[in-house]
């Protein structure tokens, strides 16, 4: 399947959960926030949320700012 992750198209194996997809990329879950198709997904639901073909994912974290 193909998903749009932070604005970029990426290939992913089918049936992957949100949690596994982020873990694969070395993300520390407690430090980020995820929006799936413009809806915020709570951290506790990541394991039960499958990623589907065509999904748009935004993964954000805190950086320096004033």
């Amino acid at each position: 399947m193909v998903v749009v992750l932070n604005g970029k198209q990426v290939e992913e194996e089918d049936g992957l959960s949100l949690h596994d997809m982020l873990l694969k990329r070395g993300i520390e879950p407690e430090r980020v926030v995820v929006e799936l198709n413009y809806e915020i997904v709570e951290r506790i639901k990541w394991k039960d949320t499958p990623v589907k073909n065509g999904d748009r994912l935004e993964v954000l974290k805190f950086v320096g700012g004033g």
């Binding site: 604005g7 970029k8 805190f62 004033g66």
Partner: peptide, 10 residues
């Protein structure tokens, strides 16, 4: 302390 929210660059 102020911070900003940004997309992660994978």
């Amino acid at each position: 302390v102020t911070v900003a929210l940004r997309r992660i660059d994978f």
